[in-house]
Amino acid sequence: MSLPRDIWRLLNLPCEGMTELGSRAFDGPMGRAERLALKVHLLTCGPCRRFLRQVGELRVALKRFSSEDESGRDLTGPRLPDEIRERIRRSIRDR
């Protein structure tokens, strides 16, 4: 299919499809038609613009979160059940 026809087809995507395209852009390179169609849609669509900007900000926070994960700082949430804790302690001692 030709580039203009691809862009035309993509330009008819509603916000659901456009935010999916935008989301995909976070995960890897996109084709030229997709990139152009998304750009044009975002020029005129405030909610999609806002969605992608907020999701982008969240990704930055998530990067921090994953390093917190390994920092040893424990957040509240489910705890390792006591019987499992005891089971693991026993297996460590028995080795």
């Binding site: 659901e16 909610p47 926070a61």
Partner: peptide, 25 residues
Amino acid sequence: GHWRLAPTRWVRSPADGIENGEFWE
């Protein structure tokens, strides 16, 4: 495929929450 529950304006950004334990929770 049009927004039914469009994103609303955020009054603070994730950057404001980085040092805040409540944000991580």
